[in-house]
Design a protein around this nucleic acid. Structure first.
Lengths: 250, 250
DNA sequence: TTGCTGCCTTGATCTGCATCAAGGCAGGTT
DNA sequence: AACCTGCCTTGATGCAGATCAAGGCAGCAA
């Protein structure tokens, strides 16, 4: 609290530092529904931004003026209760499209858990573009459908799984789909799972407390299911056991 | 178990008893994205079916060969764990579109909680139709987006709300949006909330047990928040108190 | 170096809801 | 009427995970 923040909270560069055509995230995002010769129209709408770790770039309840596409880093998406209880509804990494909602306000907040780059689009302008590119609209529907399936899986976890099952599910899902910043989701089980988020984030994602998350991971370690070389990295030692725990088998 | 079931489990009538043009559910469903002069093409694909109460008409994990549209009655959508634990992820009533998923198998099961009428569409045929009607694809994206928002709200409920808050949220949401088979969702608070599902369904929807649901409703009654003339009907006596409970205020 | 801060771990205790158990009631069958 | 059966309610007890409390450790500023 000893000095004023003089830097803008979000560093803007209206011209994307690298245009959509060369975007590393494009293969993983809805943008790849637009082919090479039309990509300029998309690039004209995109505003590339840096977001510092810890920065909230979507505030729940604010007017929803933009869509976002994550090009690097990780964000947590969350909803709050008035007394501060928090539910993290998901993590967004490279390629994730944010802001799908009919409502005029954001239904959730978003905060960077590590330094991020995001692409920002004006809602009305992107909507207009979508009218010309039904292929992209189709991709968005696919993305939304997949997220719905994931959301239902998460409801099962939150409503009916034990703490051990929740952590096992979390590690298995992360291991398969979000390993080490390689979001290609190659469906190969990773040896090492990197967790850019804190224990508190994991707790709020799984509907537990930070203490339960810590204790459960420690117990997994003593059971030789995992190793914890440091808090941010988990080594999977017994994939089969974790997977069967995750699906509710004992 | 004393006699064989001779009736087919689902009564089919390939010609819809009433064509799409006259469908009561159309104003509430994605079908209204197709205008009057093209509606025949949709009608040609639709197969209208009756589903008995208690009948499972979507089996989780089965090949996803159809889309469904609910035209009357209510279904519960659910996911199961191998040991029988169940999470109900939502209830589908008139106008609800079911089966949105990229995967080739259904991600959830569906069972009628009261007698239903549903419209069934072959997946590949409806997909082909969608290519000709981007307006309907757009509507589907809207529907999916709204369901995502609802799913996130449900995650907050399951992960962070107390039993009292869950029941209050349930009653308030039902009161506003699903009152008495009038799914117009007129955003007017209903006096009476009709619950076609059992206490066990409510418990599996809210991540609680049947006993906790019963006890909590009884307590609401003793606190003059509601009346329970019979198990299926709840009279809301103090909307404001329920709403503030639902949002986590005490 | 010292001290501070944020994050994580571990232990002791508490509690909200689950579990176990029993009984009530409405609707249907014999 | 007598008897199921399915569903709901109510009471007694138990426990998984929350809460309370304390200490460890890495990174960083003074």
């Amino acid at each position: 609290m000893t000095h004023l923040r003089v830097r803008p909270l979000i560093v803007e560069s209206v011209r994307p530092s690298e245009p959509c055509a060369a975007c590393e995230a494009r293969p993983f995002s809805v943008c790849n529904a637009i082919d090479q010769r039309d990509i300029e129209r998309l690039a004209a709408l995109a505003v590339s931004l840096s977001v510092d770790a810890g920065r909230t770039f979507i505030e729940e309840g604010d007017p929803a003026e933009h869509f976002f596409n994550v090009t690097a880093g990780t964000a947590k998406l969350f909803k709050l209760l008035p007394d501060g209880r928090r539910q993290i509804t998901g993590f967004a990494s490279m390629g994730t499209f944010l802001g799908l909602a009919v409502s005029s306000t954001y239904a959730f907040g978003a905060e960077a858990v590590e330094p991020m780059r995001i692409c920002r689009f004006s809602r009305p302008k992107l909507r207009a573009l979508l009218d010309d590119f039904p292929a992209m609209e189709k991709r968005l529907l696919e993305v939304a459908s997949n997220e719905l399936v994931a959301a239902q899986e998460q409801m099962l976890l939150l409503g009916r799984k034990t703490a051990r099952e929740r952590l096992a599910s979390f590690l298995v899902t992360r291991g398969v789909c979000a390993g080490n910043g390689a979001p290609a989701c190659g469906h190969r089980a990773a040896e090492k799972v990197t967790l850019p988020m804190t224990r508190s984030d994991i707790a709020d994602y799984l509907g537990l407390t930070i203490e339960t998350v810590s204790r459960t991971l420690t117990r997994f370690k003593s059971e030789r299911l995992i190793d914890i070389p440091n808090a941010a990295d988990i080594l999977i030692r017994d994939h089969a056991a974790l997977r069967s725990l995750a699906t509710g088998l004992h």
